[in-house]
Design a protein around this nucleic acid. Sequence first.
DNA 1: TGAAAACAATCGCCATATGCGATGATTCAA
DNA 2: TTGAATCATCGCATATGGCGATTGTTTTCA
Lengths: 296, 296
Amino acid sequence: MEVRHLAVFLAVAEERNFTRASIRLHTTQSAVSATIQSLEAELGAELFDRSARQIQVTVAGLALIPKARAVLDAVVEARDCVDAVTGGVTGTVSVGFMTSVTLVDTPRLLGEFAEANPEVRVVLRSSERGSSGLVDMLSSGEVDIAFIANLAQPSADVRLMELDSTPLLLAVTTAHRLASRGSIGLRELAGERFIDFPLGYGNRSIIDRAFADAGLDRDVRFETADIAHAAALVKNGLGVAFLPAFLVASEPSLRTLTVQGEDLKLTVSVAISHSRRPSRAAQLLWDLAQNARKPT
Amino acid sequence: MEVRHLAVFLAVAEERNFTRASIRLHTTQSAVSATIQSLEAELGAELFDRSARQIQVTVAGLALIPKARAVLDAVVEARDCVDAVTGGVTGTVSVGFMTSVTLVDTPRLLGEFAEANPEVRVVLRSSERGSSGLVDMLSSGEVDIAFIANLAQPSADVRLMELDSTPLLLAVTTAHRLASRGSIGLRELAGERFIDFPLGYGNRSIIDRAFADAGLDRDVRFETADIAHAAALVKNGLGVAFLPAFLVASEPSLRTLTVQGEDLKLTVSVAISHSRRPSRAAQLLWDLAQNARKPT
DNA sequence: TGAAAACAATCGCCATATGCGATGATTCAA
DNA sequence: TTGAATCATCGCATATGGCGATTGTTTTCA
């Protein structure tokens, strides 16, 4: 009987639903199912009655609930007491991030982290080369953890956790020939001038990939790493751009179009190196990000 | 942080020695080493100071000890409370065993088990075909758990745990031509008449294997499944036999010889089926056997 | 002071556990 | 009776843990 088993058990007992428990635990329903089964086998008792639509906690399960909580509490205490002795977490975390993506509220996240771990020095770093640059910095140890957008080629050495995603919409001026269209095929965009991020940025790579997969070329006339700047260029009629929905939703001077048959999304993830052991501080920041994550 | 980590930590803290802790935990030193390292990494603190010959528990480790105990206690409570609700363990265990091998005190083991689990009905079974028969009974589900001696061909479906082993010595009468020898080569035994177990018995298969490997034939003149009977036959000059050391050590009418260059041992193991989930009762009996095991 | 012993760390390999996505079976409501 | 909700099961990929062998360091003993 491991701590993990009991944590899953409690989640199911509280939600009275395997699927919701799996969402809360950021895992899958099948994993929850398997865990409960192995716990039941080990204890030699059914913990839930699944015969009805709404699962019922059995008598054995009810008895276990407070004891399981006691175990988890004891574990938290164990961890805390070590932290107390070592004077809490110290050291330095180096955090790679992207300036212009406000989809995930990294400032708030870092604020919470700093408050909880006042002894940790936080160093913010960014990269000229967007997400792929940040990944390289992770591998080289230049940063301990990074917030990145979609990767063209997921590196094997990087452990990713998706935090949130937003659709990428094609933004055009109100005067544009496509302004009145609600959606459009990639093929019809062949002649457009595009504004986009420099190569290496997650945003850029998804669009490049979509065009390449469709066997199409694209004329990227302007490149900028500043997303607000990109929006301003579109407004001034210098071209069209794929921009995150949250940025263009409330812009009266822009119209947005979805792309038919493509699922263009900007996804923000946290990333740590797979090969390097994360420092305690980096681990805590990862955990914090996990809690801030939108349930799948 | 899992229960297992804390259990290993406590063992090391109490033994103040990784190697001894590994013996107590029935695992290897390298596994203990790895576990402690991962726990230290997770907590972000050193728990032991290994710079000196005698390891020291650090301040952080000292603080953790009582908390770790609290976690383990809470886990035991959790398990007990479920057992209490389900009215303890019930059902039937079917135990396969070998009558004549007293190397492991199975009666005492079963006595302890029966006392701890009064509601469990224990059915004892044995096999005409020794250990290999017991293995077949395991696979077919005829028995839930079995105590067996060395297997000629370890079955993939059987999970084994060694309990104890004893050297097999060649027993001869005091009048025998080899009585004054302390040891002997297999080759010199070519002309002897042997008394041994029937085919299928662990005892028999090790000796057969040793002779076969050496390219030698052997004349097994008498077969008996009763080990005491075999000893009696030897005493009466009907032949020689390989018998467990504990049986022949105190026999004034017998002399014993070791075999040069061979490590002939009778090993007693518990076995359960690998494919069938053990019942709770079978699991408890397995655990009990593990505790009774001689440290490796 | 040199050899041996004690002991933890590390490495390569393998088995098991866990996680995931897809699919199947069951229940229940419309 | 159909469809939505929900848990179980299956096959596969990966991570974790365990083992045995080896290495390197410290300590002890001759």
